[in-house]
């Protein structure tokens, strides 16, 4: 089974209608179904609720007994402090996530094209070796990675902070981007079209530029969302390879929330500020994202 389309999942196959012929059972079942759906939704949203109400309370009004209650008086002081502490790193995270997403998507598209439609001897083995790179625990490369990047910095002084993370996220993003594009091209680009191009004498790069790339937009949407999110949310590389002055927002958020800060409003607001970009991406592009997950994993 290869579900490699990048179309929104709910358009791939229309959802079957309910049990039309049995209206009475339908009602009871539907009632139960919606009750469960709403209960689960409340549970899932609970941490978000805590974040929101706490972040909007003025520091003086936050007391232990009232933590679960709605704010009586709305204050934006927590948000202001969180924004003040996080905004420089938000900007750095944005650069990081955009650059890493674009670079690894381009490489993934080229690789995916070759692995799907321009194979070379042993390309399947190479592809499987690439895939393993998707699953490795980064702990297994972290120690020499630190040293290698440090050596590299000696003659590339700019390779610090965000550029360093862009490099790392681009490289470790190659496997998943390659997989997504390979599966996408394998279904979206018929072999016949490529054969026709070959007969016309088109070389590999011309074939890519004139046939493959123009139909790649859905694949790019998926890899860009995926890579943007994982680069934005990463903490491990940030912790090992950057510092508070040149690191991304996850690093600075962890410091803002460090054990001694008693200002819960700013901590909770900080969590929301640091999560908003990816949340927006999910809410706006969520359907595309689900299909991205599919093409990346269901084989």
């Amino acid at each position: 089974m290869s579900t490699a389309t990048a179309a929104p999942v709910d358009q791939a196959v229309p959802a079957p209608a309910g049990d039309g012929g049995r209206p009475r059972r339908f009602t009871v079942r539907a009632g139960l179904r919606y009750t469960l759906l709403i209960i689960f939704a409340i549970i899932v949203l609970m941490p978000l609720y805590v974040l929101l109400v706490t972040s909007l309370k003025p520091a003086s009004a936050i007391s232990a007994d009232q933590a679960w209650r709605l704010p009586v008086e709305i204050s934006t002081a927590g948000w202001a402090e969180a924004w003040g502490r996080l905004s420089p790193s938000l900007y750095r995270s944005l650069i990081l996530a955009v650059c890493a997403a674009v670079l690894s998507s381009i490489l993934g598209s080229l690789n995916g094209f070759v692995f799907a439609r321009w194979k070379f001897p042993g390309s399947n083995v190479v592809f499987t070796l690439f895939l393993f790179g998707m699953f490795i625990p980064y702990q297994a490369v972290m120690i020499p990675l630190q040293g290698m990047l440090l050596d590299a910095q000696a003659f590339l002084p700019w390779l610090d902070g965000i550029p360093r993370l862009i490099l790392v996220h681009t490289v470790y993003g190659i496997p998943i981007c390659t997989l997504i594009f390979r599966n996408y091209y394998a279904t979206a680009v018929p072999v016949e079209i490529l054969e026709a191009a070959k007969v016309d004498g088109a070389g590999m790069l011309r074939t890519y530029a004139s046939i493959i790339f123009p139909v790649s937009i859905p694949g790019f949407v998926v890899t860009l969302i995926w890579q943007f999110t994982s680069a934005w949310n990463d903490f491990l590389f940030a912790l090992f390879l950057t510092n508070a002055q040149n690191g991304p927002v996850t690093y600075v958020l962890n410091e803002l929330a460090g054990g001694q800060n008693p200002n819960y409003a700013s901590i909770m607001a900080g969590v929301l500020v640091a999560s908003l970009p990816t949340l927006i991406v999910y809410v706006v592009l969520g359907r595309w994202f689900i299909s991205g997950l599919m093409s990346g994993s269901v084989k």
């Binding site: 003086s60 009004a61 936050i62 007994d65 200002n263």
Partner: peptide, 12 residues
């Protein structure tokens, strides 16, 4: 963890 006092202390 007592949050009320933590928050009062912030003002102080």
């Amino acid at each position: 963890m007592d949050r009320r006092s933590l928050f009062i202390s912030l003002g102080a």
